[in-house]
Design a protein around this nucleic acid. Structure first.
Length: 467
RNA sequence: GGCCCCAUCGUCUAGUGGACUAGGACGCGGCCCUUUCAAGGCUGAGAUCGCGGGUUCGAAUCCCGCUGGGGCUACCA
């Protein structure tokens, strides 16, 4: 084991490979990464795969992929190795077994042969009598069931007061007399979360435990394990406010699509925009700055400006931030990022479209709707005679033009002027004829992006007749 | 039920006893710009600071109670 060095900042995240990359994991990873970077520390990724039912090895990739996309990179992990390898809890079972044996040997833990049914009955009984439930310690006494072979290991909770420091909430204190003896090793031989986590944190010299608020009440459990094992406790904890759904409920993957990180990439949110939004959910810089690069966040972030209450997720604000980031991208960069969302278009066309797209995209995927007319044949519009006349006038000048936005713009303005009518009297029927929609990029771009012959034939078709 | 955390515009938040007729951002309304849609500029509405008691000359800010929300209380993490 590495020599503990209290001055060194080491933080970790410990996601479970359930086949789903959760928004909360990104949020926690972000705060850990920020803290590590700000303190010249190390960011560890540990895979918490102790639930045989739910976890699949191949699901690790889903998490790596999402975190990489967000640019949240770790220094040590199952895929990278490191001084405290292995970083997969399923591969650290000897360590947990060893520690459980030690606790067992010292009388700080004991085998529990109770069945789930018996335990359920105990719990229901307590509930019926309106008394707080704690395990009865049956297996510690003379009533312990004999001739059974399957057992779990329980930690013998010493009771008393458990105190610790939370960087967000200050001094915390829990009454451990209220905590029943909890299971640390399941009957399948795997450790439970509240055992594996503190053992690993100690073994990996984790200095600061930064995680979601749902773990606040777990902390006394884990601290008792650390103490019983004689390890130094982490320097401090930080329990981040939860991200809530729009309706104020906890984000669940079943009910709330926004819980799924993959969705953001698919919809065309920029990773740096999501990071920015996540940072602002539950934290604020104390200034009016809203847009932050990662490096700026490293400098500005501090736990004492973290909110204590859960924060609701808001698509509108995310869309705004994402739009801000999109508008700030230069042409080439925006074209590159747009490519996956416009598979039907060649690079040159995308590049030509970019200036017309920039201020119109709350997310990259919106480009597809705006440019759909380039790869689909729109229905021919029904034009009023007056509108058809405008289209004919436009066609007349368009025919002789170099096919670029500027000349198209100038020529069309000439047509508008001659008509003595508002520009929209000409532009809207042209737009309708070419795209089939009332909304499109500016008309000069709308036309120029289409091959000239295609554009003209659509106009011709709209006024009745062939080209 | 028990324990713990929390509570300011619809949402994210500023605010740490007097500068608060409670500020900003998103969203929403209006106006301007304009070629549709955006973007941009200006502007407006929107919170009796969850409720009730205290403390104080004075409370969004401190204390107590209540209510409401969330978490933990699993051989899930």
């Amino acid at each position: 084991m590495a020599v503990p060095d209290a001055s060194k900042v080491r933080v970790r995240i410990a996601p479970s490979p359930t086949g789903f990359a959760h928004l909360g994991t990104a949020s926690t990873a972000l705060y850990n990464a920020l803290f590590a970077r700000a303190n010249g520390g190390t960011f560890v990724l540990r895979v918490d795969d102790t639930d045989l039912e739910r976890n699949r090895p191949e699901y690790e990739l889903v998490i790596y992929d999402a975190l990489h996309w967000l640019g949240l990179d770790w220094d040590e992990g199952p895929d990278k190795g490191g001084p405290d390898a292995p970083y997969r809890q399923s591969e650290r079972r000897d360590l947990y077994r060893e520690h459980a044996a030690r606790l067992l040997g010292e009388g700080k833990a004991y085998r529990c042969y109770c069945t789930r049914e018996e335990l359920d009955a105990e719990r229901k009984q307590a509930q019926a009598e309106k008394r707080p439930y704690k395990y009865s310690r049956r297996c510690l006494g003379p009533d312990a069931p004999k001739d059974r072979t399957e057992f779990a290991v329980r930690f013998k909770v010493p009771g008393g007061e458990v105190k610790f420091k939370d960087m967000i909430r200050g001094d915390m204190s829990f009454d451990a007399d209220l905590i029943g003896d909890f299971i640390i090793v399941k009957s399948d031989g795997y450790p439970t979360y509240n055992f594996a986590s503190p053992v690993d944190d100690a073994a990996m010299n984790i200095s600061h435990v930064i995680r979601g608020e749902e773990h606040l009440s777990n902390t006394p459990y884990q601290l008792m394990i650390v103490d019983a094992l004689g390890y130094p406790r982490p320097v401090a904890y930080a329990h981040m406010p939860l991200i809530l759904a729009k309706d104020g409920a906890k984000l669940s993957k079943r009910k709330h699509p926004e819980a799924n990180l993959i969705l953001y990439r698919e919809e065309g949110y920029l990773p740096e925009a999501l990071i920015n939004y996540l940072a602002l959910l539950g934290w604020n810089p104390g200034t009016s700055q809203e847009i932050f690069t990662f490096d700026e966040l490293v400098l500005a972030f501090s736990f004492d400006r973290v909110q204590h209450a859960g924060a609701r997720f808001d698509w509108e604000k995310l869309n705004w931030i994402n739009g801000e980031y999109i508008r700030r991208l230069d042409d080439e960069e925006l074209a590159q990022r747009l490519k996956p969302f416009l598979p039907k278009l060649d690079d040159a066309t995308i590049r030509r479209a970019v200036p017309a797209l920039r201020t119109r995209l709350p997310k990259l995927k919106a480009a597809a709707e705006l440019l759909e007319y380039l790869w689909t044949e729109p229905p021919a519009p029904q034009l009023e005679p007056e509108a058809a006349e405008r289209v004919r006038a436009a066609m007349a000048v368009l025919k002789e033009l170099p096919w670029e936005p500027e000349p198209i713009h100038e020529a069309l303005m000439g047509v508008v002027e001659k008509s003595g009518l508002g520009p929209n009297k000409t532009f809207m029927p042209v737009r309708l004829a070419v795209t089939g929609k009332k909304i499109s990029p500016p008309i000069d771009y709308t036309l120029a992006l289409l091959p000239k012959d295609v554009a003209l034939s659509r106009l011709q078709r709209a006024v009745g007749g062939s080209a």
